[in-house]
Design a protein around this nucleic acid. Sequence first.
DNA 1: TCGCACATGTAACGTGTTACATGATTCA
DNA 2: TGAATCATGTAACACGTTACATGTGCGA
Lengths: 190, 190
Amino acid sequence: MSSGTPTNLEFALLGLLHSAPQSGYDLRKVFAETAMGNYSSSPGAIYPALKRLERRQLIEGEVDRTVSLRPKKMFRPTTTGAAVFREWLLREISLEDVRRNLDELILRFAFYSTLDDAGSTRHFLEVLARRVDEYLQELLTQRAMMSRLEGSAGEVPIHARMAFEFGIEQYRAWGRWARRAMKRFEEERE
Amino acid sequence: MSSGTPTNLEFALLGLLHSAPQSGYDLRKVFAETAMGNYSSSPGAIYPALKRLERRQLIEGEVDRTVSLRPKKMFRPTTTGAAVFREWLLREISLEDVRRNLDELILRFAFYSTLDDAGSTRHFLEVLARRVDEYLQELLTQRAMMSRLEGSAGEVPIHARMAFEFGIEQYRAWGRWARRAMKRFEEERE
DNA sequence: TCGCACATGTAACGTGTTACATGATTCA
DNA sequence: TGAATCATGTAACACGTTACATGTGCGA
């Protein structure tokens, strides 16, 4: 299909354009210079992504010649673009998201300032914390099954087990972060 | 090129075959049922990956009809396959790896049992801890630059800042894990 | 005038995702 | 006999990576 859900990179671009109209080059710099770089980089990904967003009418570009003769295409989100972005931000977090799309979740959260609604932030963090707990239960069950194999033929090697433990640690960190963040927003409300 | 470095999925397959010859279906089950699933899934990725590994002569398959009439192709790593895998495990960790290929790093570590060499494990963890610290320094510098913008026009929104903080937390967790793991292996040596 | 930063792109390539296809075997 | 599981695959598609191409404006 030509109109599947945008990718993380496309949402990241859409979100950055939400704060101010920018050119492809400006956006590239953001990715190159900040931690946003995890979500991609380099012209080969960004320019095509912008073109796709334009084709789907989620953003619109306008050539700017005011600064100099050198043309510069400034993009801004369209009304539907802003709506699609908002829908993405507010989309309910699923267990699958927590299992495999953690990158997307933190990217979404990073753009929650554009919503300007403390309630949404709280809801996001609450659901996130709950889903993380659910997934942690799964992981702990898996760990229990692993230790039951200990000493037997199908025993999981020590390094693999430690890698797995680390995975658990990471999810614990997500849970802690979500809860700390919730507290922080509650304090600010007072 | 037809013979670039194998992907994470290919290395994961190669590593699993290192412990025992298995069929594509067996491997699929491992990915479906364990935390390994993060590195992919589903026939559409695994069978082509196996075919590529076979074409590059890193694994070889043999049809097994002993169990039943139903043919089952059992794969095992070739000598060069084992060598390439070993080289991958021992490859020096770069800052770039820590920046963007954390998944690959933990996957590598998970297979360190196949090396059966405590020294390599220690080296891996030491370099990892060092590189993580280096990267943390970068992140802290970025954070300092961010807070200098506070109150000004280019101020980074609160949610983005918190997402960034979380990134820092994640790397701290990596550092802690690496150091704890080192201690654990040292204790075992006594 | 030399080189660098600005600015925008394209082309080849490989890989993963999703969805579909096929057939054998086992068990109720 | 029918359903589930075993077992192996293919095809369409979109995306990201790498590498290359092109040209402007500015400062030394």
